[in-house]
Design a protein around this nucleic acid. Sequence first.
DNA 1: GATGAACCTGCACCGATACT
DNA 2: AGTATCGGTGCAGGTTCATC
Length: 350
Amino acid sequence: MYIMTDISGKKPRRVTLKMIAEQTGFTINTVSHALNGKSDISARTTEIIKRKAQEMGYINDMTASALRSGFTKTIALILPNVANPFWAVLIKGINLELYRAGYTSLIMDTDENSHLEYRAVQSAISRKVDGIIICPNQLDTKAIQLIEKHRIPYIFLGRKFEDFPANYVIWDDENGGFLATSYLLSLGKRKILFLNGPRHISSSAERFRGYCRALASYQIPYDPALVAETTISAAGDNNDLLQILKQDLDFDAIFAFSDFIAWEIMVLLPKLKQVDISQIPIIGFDDIQSDLRLPLPFTTIGADKTLEVRQVVQSLLKIIKDPDSDTCYQIIMPTHLVFHNQPEGWAAPH
DNA sequence: GATGAACCTGCACCGATACT
DNA sequence: AGTATCGGTGCAGGTTCATC
C-alpha cells in the first residue's frame, strides 16, 4: 500500500491520477484512459499503469469523476417499507442487477410518508444520482414533480398513477385480486373478508377491482362491510388491523393485501376470536415464501420477481442512456396462484 | 512523401468551497 | 466579489510509426 504524505509529512493523502502519472511518466489523461479501459491506449501502457495503480492502492474518486462526466453511477431506490421481506427480496435482486451494470444503489425508506418521500428525492438529487427507482406512496405527487423538474430519469416500481404517463413495472394486480378471490370461492366460501391496503394506492385499487370481478363471476353480491383498508407502513402497529378483526364481522375466508398482513392475521385472529383458524382459509399477496423458503403452509399470489427486477433495472438504464427517447416502458408482470407446503393428499382446486 | 491508424497530450470544464 | 483549488474526464489535436 502506497501512503502519500503532504509537505509537512503528517497527513496521509489518497492516491490520485496525478501521482500515478508522476510515477509512470505518462500524463494524467493517459492514466485516466488506461484505468478506464479506453481503446486508444496500448495494451502495454495500460498494463504498466494498471499495475502501478494497484501497487499504489489507487481508488477512483467518484465525486471528481461525476463532476466532469455528470454521472455518478448511482441509482436511488426509494421504497415504502424495507422492513417488509417483499421489498428486501426486490432490493437484493435490484442491487445485483445494478452491480452487474456497474452501478451502486442508494436505498431510502419512505414509510409511506409524503414528507419522507420528498426528503428522499431531495437527497437523491443532491447526490446527483443517475436515476431513481421509486414505489410512490401516492398520497400526493410532490416528490414526483420534483424528480420531473430536475429531469432525473425514473421508473415506478409496483405502483402507477392513472392520470399521467410514466414508466413503470407493476404486477397484474387486478388479475391477482381475481385469482385470489376466485380461489377462495372455489373452496365453497362465500363471505370473503378483503383486508386491502389504502385505496389511493394503485395496487390496492386494482386488487379491489379483481375482488369485485371474481364475486360477480360467482354471482355473489358485493358487501361493502366485508372490505376494509389497513395501514401498510412499517411504523404503523397492528392497531387498525386489530380494530377490524375485533369487529363482529361475519366472514368465512380472508384475502389479505399482502403476505405480511396475512401473517399478522394468522397470529391475531386466534387470540381475538374463538375460531378454528384451519377452517378459515387465508390467502396473501406477494409470494414472499418463494424467496424466504419458510415451512408454513400458505397460499398466495406471485409473479416472476427475477424478471421483474431485470425489467425495472434494464428499463431505467435505457432511459438514462437515451433520456430524450419517446419509448415508454410500461410493463405489467403476470400474476399467478402459489401454493406452499400444502398437506399431503391436498390438491389445488382448478 | 503521402496517408492513416495508433497512441498520447493539452485544454477546458464540472460544482462547492476556501482563500485573497 | 473574484480567484484558486480539488480530481477526473470529454474532446480536439499533436506525434509517432508502419505501409504503400
